[in-house]
Design a protein around this nucleic acid. Structure first.
Lengths: 144, 144
DNA sequence: TAACAATAATTAGTACAACAAATATATAAG
DNA sequence: CTTATATATTTGTTGTACTAATTATTGTTA
């Protein structure tokens, strides 16, 4: 195959990625979930393991530290999480999912799972496995 | 398969998409291409068909109009493109790839093709076809 | 212990994304 | 012709991404 014929994957990936976010965001709005899709990722990670510090959390959700700082700022304002000083290392904060945050998660999680499923209604389990494998292979090939 | 097992694709897609951009942007920097990846998309589209108006161009590269307006602003500053008033419809500009822009494209295009190929070095042609099919299916399933 | 390096988080600056609203112009309907 | 509607683009706002620089703290080593 020629090089030129490979030239559209980044476009397809980018626009599909954007549409997935748009779709989820639109549903969030319809359901009056007052968060963005990226904020959701943070809450979900904390719901699985609470009180991570920011670096761990950034690693978990694959965002960099400055971006995470701002997402945490926004979630703090909404009182869904709070920063807690770690006495043993005063450089760190642990991010704590509050009771309000936990309550919202219980309310939102099943609906988010529904929303996420929509993308797969015309695809098979094998497609899902293939997509994961292909994306991970690309990710590793472009190690930076 | 349970709903829960489908819950990571958006994360994988997002991080792979980000890495593809990061990788290309890093190479652009190394080669002293003084543009961003998104600006490249615009130039590439104009190189294939010059003098599109902004709406056509936005459609071509899958971005919305406000985003494109700002990308065009930046490309104008670099004198790679220029806005030309269309006398027949004074609402429109056609975006013209300048001589300087064309010259840069000749210089850059082969190297960008190389950079783009890197993602596929551990994958097959069938993987490429599968990825395209899966992404397009998702895109269409989430019609908004 | 003092100097140096490493780590956690933040801040600042620029770019892009999404959305809503505004402006200007063109076209259609009455 | 006038009103209404549609189209092309821009502007404003909020949120995310990346880089580099900064602050505060901790760890290492001479």
């Amino acid at each position: 195959m020629t090089k030129e014929s490979f030239n559209t994957y980044s476009y397809l990936l980018d626009r599909t990625n954007r549409r997935i976010k748009q779709f989820a965001q639109k549903k969030f709005k319809e359901e009056s979930f007052d968060i963005t899709v990226d904020q959701w990722l943070v809450l979900k990670s904390l719901n699985q393991e609470n009180d991570q510090n920011q670096s761990e959390l950034a690693e978990q959700i694959g965002k960099d530290n400055p971006t995470l700082t701002r997402i945490i700022d926004l979630l703090c304002k909404k009182e869904l999480v709070e920063r807690r000083q770690l006495p043993s290392d005063r450089r760190c904060f642990t991010i704590h999912l509050t009771d309000k945050g936990k309550q919202k998660m219980e309310e939102w999680a099943p609906k988010v799972a529904e929303i996420r499923m929509k993308a797969w209604e015309n695809l098979t389990e094998k497609d899902y496995e293939d997509l994961k494998r292909i994306l991970n292979t690309i990710y590793q090939s472009l190690e930076i």
